[in-house]
Design a protein around this nucleic acid. Sequence first.
DNA 1: AGCTTGTATCGATGTTTGTGGATACAACCT
DNA 2: AGGTTGTATCCACAAACATCGATACAAGCT
Lengths: 119, 119
Amino acid sequence: MQQLPVLDQPDACCAGLASAPLAEAEATELARVFKALGDPVRLRLLSMIASREGGEMCVCELTPAFDLAQPTISHHLKLLRQAGLIDCERRGTWVYYWALPSTMDSLAAVLRAPQAAQA
Amino acid sequence: MQQLPVLDQPDACCAGLASAPLAEAEATELARVFKALGDPVRLRLLSMIASREGGEMCVCELTPAFDLAQPTISHHLKLLRQAGLIDCERRGTWVYYWALPSTMDSLAAVLRAPQAAQA
DNA sequence: AGCTTGTATCGATGTTTGTGGATACAACCT
DNA sequence: AGGTTGTATCCACAAACATCGATACAAGCT
């Protein structure tokens, strides 16, 4: 259950896609995160969790929001977690998930055009 | 060869993943673009093109940069194009590709936490 | 201890996806 | 017209993926 920290390289990745050609290793790590976002169900799950008032959401609320079997939702949550986009904790009977905005911000930075470097 | 304009909805999508739960249709469109980014080869292709000095890159330069057959590169470029991340034009014998930063910026905006809405 | 409910893992299955060989198309050059 | 080179499409195949039923695990309740 590697919780891959993916995006903490000092410069290489955080400089942005458009500032220099991505090395193979960076591309592989980044692709894993983008792949996690490349499914409608996972995007909606992440969005539901991230937009939640208190910042957390119970699986028991997520599952019935979809027309999918419970194991399927569980599987998607696992992928989002492995991508470092969300994390979870069990509290008593229920498991709560929350978003990890730092990962999303890192991705956003990667997609943005180099800002200071031009103009 | 739909060149799906994906990210031009006025508010819904551009408000960001974390501001409100994504509707199913929005999620489907967004997922298609993220899926295009969810492959190391495509990420490197996009990065090579986007970081190119003149803004354009010839396929004849892209293909030999990978250990893959020419049809495979062509296929990946097609997916990036269908996602609205790049576009191309044939000039004489060669085909040139360039990045479409507006799509990347839109994605970045979707990933960013709502900035004005809180604080 | 048993029962019930919430969640994750396992195993199987149908679909999608990445890949490359063969081939077709496009443009140049004799 | 024929030949050569660059690029895209077609077809097939193996690997990856989304899905679900069955089952296992976790925690509360009686």
